[in-house]
Design a protein around this nucleic acid. Structure first.
Lengths: 228, 228
DNA sequence: TTCTATATAATTGTCGACAATTTGAGATAT
DNA sequence: ATATCTCAAATTGTCGACAATTATATAGAA
């Protein structure tokens, strides 16, 4: 009696030590606990987490692949330095990829998924009415919404690029640049139109609206950063 | 007299052992020398290349980041299995990213870069006239053209995603699916229109044309694969 | 025969040590 | 004082060995 809760035997739930390390360090970097631009000392980090340097290096390698750290041979790894220019670049990539995701979602999302997304959006609407102006908790909701549309594209490459790479970088900027948006009700409206296009199965319109949505989000960020 | 040929001292020309390993294995995978879908045995590969398992594992990690191999804990790494579905996914991502690249190139390429690209394109035109139908060598030219436009976007994120990740996967499909296109003269025409849009500094049109170009390239591939 | 259980072999994950390179401090020369 | 050289300390790159997990072969039960 071995495979009781595991339906088949080909699902590796195994979580390796490097996996945990990777998660912990990624969180520390995203939340700014390890400062942006700082050097990463392998011996020190390894000691802190009570792990060998080999495992640590493997974790750093993955961080590098996600562009959270940069590595130079014989010089070591540094946390990426956040910059206005890089943030703009990220938004441009995001516009392209999420636009395509919305287009595909309009074609490939199941009716059930659309229905659930509608429910989520309604919930956001109520939250906005209740906590009027307190757009803090709303930020997570925004990510949820985008996350589901990306999943709905059913394109695994696209999903990986956005959910595994870009979104972590974005979260890092949100944390460290203190990017709380004061346009949650406008964003809600835009989400609403977008979902309409998707449930109408209109790929062209879905992509258009998603790109506008991200562009206006970018303009908002630009304005906010220029104030400082 | 130490820094003679090195202008500054902050340029790591150092090529580590893992770097070389990574390049060699990547080439072997892309060209099908290590068959798609096959398991990668760490001890064996390490022995073959006369290197320790640690270095090899680091190289495999990078391959994984480029989506050329897939890894499961305790089960090892396998070369990705090529599939029609995945190829379509890649083309969709490519359409989104290169479309944006063309848009940005229309804004950011220097006049000099545009001029040089024009020269490259003229050269392609002559090659097509000479070796009529022999579209084999032309394939590299196609990649060159796209490569330069991506560079012209000046968006480092975009450049990395396309040139470091996607293009290698694409080359792998080209090698192993035997994707030689018989539409080199049509592709040439499309390149011509696209370059016109760029030199007219028309981002909207540049993106549109690039996306059409990639879509028709995708349709060509689909047709070709359905014949087999 | 077919299936299960067990033991053995092979592979992957993790570790500590050594080699190569870079960093930094102190000494010497200009 | 500034600059250059030298040498020790620290850091990264690479390696081989051990531990944990999985795959394989064999024997026994249905």
């Amino acid at each position: 009696m071995r495979s009781q809760s595991r339906v088949e035997k080909n699902d590796p739930i195994t979580i390796t030590l490097t996996d945990r390390l990777f998660d912990k360090i990624q969180r520390a970097i995203v939340e700014g606990e390890i400062p942006s631009g700082s050097k990463i000392s392998e011996p020190e980090l390894a000691r802190q987490h009570g792990v060998s340097r080999g495992s640590l290096r493997e974790a750093i390698g993955r961080l590098e692949a996600r562009k959270l750290v940069e590595r130079k041979p014989n010089l070591g790894a540094r946390v990426v330095t956040l910059s206005y220019e890089q943030l703009i670049e990220i938004y441009q990539v995001r516009e392209a990829l999420e636009g395509m995701a919305a287009r595909l979602a309009a074609q490939n999302m199941s009716d059930k998924e659309i229905e659930e997304l509608q429910l989520l959006l309604d919930q956001h609407g109520r939250q906005i009415e209740e906590q009027h102006g307190e757009a803090y908790f709303q930020k997570q909701g925004d990510l949820d919404f985008h996350y589901r549309i990306v999943q709905g594209s059913k394109n695994h490459h696209l999903i990986g690029l956005l959910c595994n790479d870009l979104y972590h970088l974005l979260r890092m900027y949100r944390y460290q640049f203190g990017m709380r948006s004061k346009r949650s009700s406008q964003a809600y409206d835009e989400h609403h139109y977008l979902l309409n296009a998707i449930s109408s199965r209109d790929p062209e319109m879905a992509e258009l609206l998603m790109r506008q949505h991200i562009r206006s989000s970018r303009r908002n960020v630009e304005r906010m950063l220029l104030e400082n």
